[in-house]
Each structure stands twice: as C-alpha cells, then as structure tokens.
Amino acid sequence: MTDASVVSQSVNESKSSPLSFLAGPGITVNPGKVFSTVLMPIIGIVVFLLIWSGAARNIDTSLGKFPGPVAVWEQFGSLYQEHVTEREKAEAFYQRQEKRNAARVAKDPDYVPKIRAYTGKETFLDQIVTSLVTVMSGFLLAALVAIPLGIAIGLNKTLNAAVNPIIQIFKPVSPLAWLPLVTMVVSALYISPDPLVAKSFLNSMITVMLCCLWPMVINTSVGVSSLDRDLINVSRVLRLPALKHVQKIVLPASVPMIFTGMRLSLGVAWMVLIAAEMLAQNPGLGKFVWDEFQNGSSNSLARIMVAVIVIGVIGFGLDRAMLAIQRFASWDKSKATH
C-alpha cells in the first residue's frame, strides 16, 4: 500500500458517516455502500432491541422482570446522576473541612490543619476508571517483560528450547487459577504501612499481566524467529553489532507480529479482569456487577445490564485503539487489518 493511498483513505474517513467506526478505521464509506455500512447495522441493532424487549417481558426472575432496553436506558441515567450527586457531596465535604480548618487556624495560628480524604462510595464511573487503569497497567507491565523475553527467545534457539515447555504449559491455564496464589503472595510480600497502591489493585493487575504475558511472548518470538534469512545475511555482510542488529533489523521486522500479540492479549485481559474483580472483590466493573447481584434490588438486573453494555463498548474501544496504534507503528499495513 502506498503512502498516497493511506492519506486518501484517512481523508475519506473524515468525510464518512459517523457510523463508519463500526466498520473499522480505514474503511471508506462511499454512497453505494451506505446500505451495507450504515443501514444494515442500524437495522441489526433495532431488531436486536426488539427481540430483547420481547424476550425480557417473558422472563420473570426473583428480582422481578428481566430488564428491557427502556429500563436499562433509565439506569444509565440514574447511574450517572448518582455519580454527580456523589461528587457534589465530596465537594461539600471538602468545603466544610476547609472552613473548619480555616476557623481553627484563625483561633490558633500554631495549629497545622489536617486534611482528610472523602471516603464516599465508589460510583459506577469510578469503577470504570479503576478497571481501565488496572487493565492498562497490567498490560503495559506485561509488554515490558514479554517483548524483550520474546525477542531473546526468538533470537536464541537454546533459550527457546529451555523456555518453550514452560510457556506451553502455562499458556492454557486460565489466569483466574492464579488469582488465589497471587492474592496470597501479594499479601505476604507487599507489607507497607502506607501503601502506594492498594493490594486489591495489585492482585488484579498481576492477574491481568499473567494472562497478557503468553500471547505477547509467543507472537514476539515467532515474529523474531521467522525473520527472513536474506535480511539476516544483509546484517551479517554489514557486520552490524548485536544491539544494532536487534534495533535496526529484528525489531522493525517483528513489529507486525508484536502488535498482533498485543491486540490479542489486550482483548483477553479485559475479559479476565472483569472476572478477576468479581472473584476477588477488587474494585472495578466486576465488583460493581457482583455488588449489584448481591444487592438484589428491583433495579439490580438493569444496572448489571448497563455494566454489560459498558464493558462491551470499552472492550471494542480498546481493540480499535490498539488497531489504530498498530496501523501507525507498523510498516506492513496489510497485516494491520481488522
């Protein structure tokens, strides 16, 4: 693909319909295709909503009727409203505290004001942010370990022979199986009176990292080891030093495969994180779902449905973001398709 065509694509994209993101970046929407790229998705969604609300009316649970689209839409609103209210409360709390402190300092100039943090309940939006931060940190940490490891394994046959059995055995293990072990190890090793980050955060992050590790290691090492013999020979003829060989030849050549691994693992990580949060009662979207389930109010199911939709949309967004980065960073545009 030429540079020119890339440019023209992005120009077209900015002109295309707002729904074109469903088809993925770089896909042009010309008038003839409007039917398949705009109309059909809309029809699909409408039909889905109809089936959903039809089915929902006929399902009775112990918590009332299964929520239909309207009930869920209402919960979207009320969850947002709860968030706004909670923020106002926090704001009011800090204002009161500031006033109180100012008054005491006025009375007694030696008094050093104490500032207490507001300990309200975490709102739905807070949980979203927590989940996102957790998944990104686990993912980045995994990349930091996995990519150098993958390069080393890909370059060195002996190392590959040594590490491969371990990877093959750990790869199919659900990261959730690690969760109890991670929890115990973290609480045994991470003892600090004033912890920088919460233990629960570490637990979920390490679990996410463990599940991101394998796809990235495997894809990176495959990318590196399948390097074209001719390119290796070019490097040998030029007598590139080892570090330069990796930097100039190996790394760029395996960028497409590295990104494939990263995209794969980010998708898995997001799924695993929700489950891990539910299991371990770590803050985040998973905990939100679990709390609502335990809560058992008449709105609970609708609120869980909201979480389900949000989880899906975020997962989709993460994948699209990775794809965009991959397209930007990768020279081999043909591999960076959806």
Binding site: D230, L231, V234, K248, I249, P252, V255, W331
Partner: peptide, 9 residues
C-alpha cells in the same frame, strides 16, 4: 541477493 532483500520498512 537474488530477491533484492531490502528492508521493507
């Protein structure tokens, strides 16, 4: 080399 072996990136 026979097949150019330029670095494609």
């Amino acid at each position: 080399f026979q097949n150019h072996s330029l670095l494609p990136w």
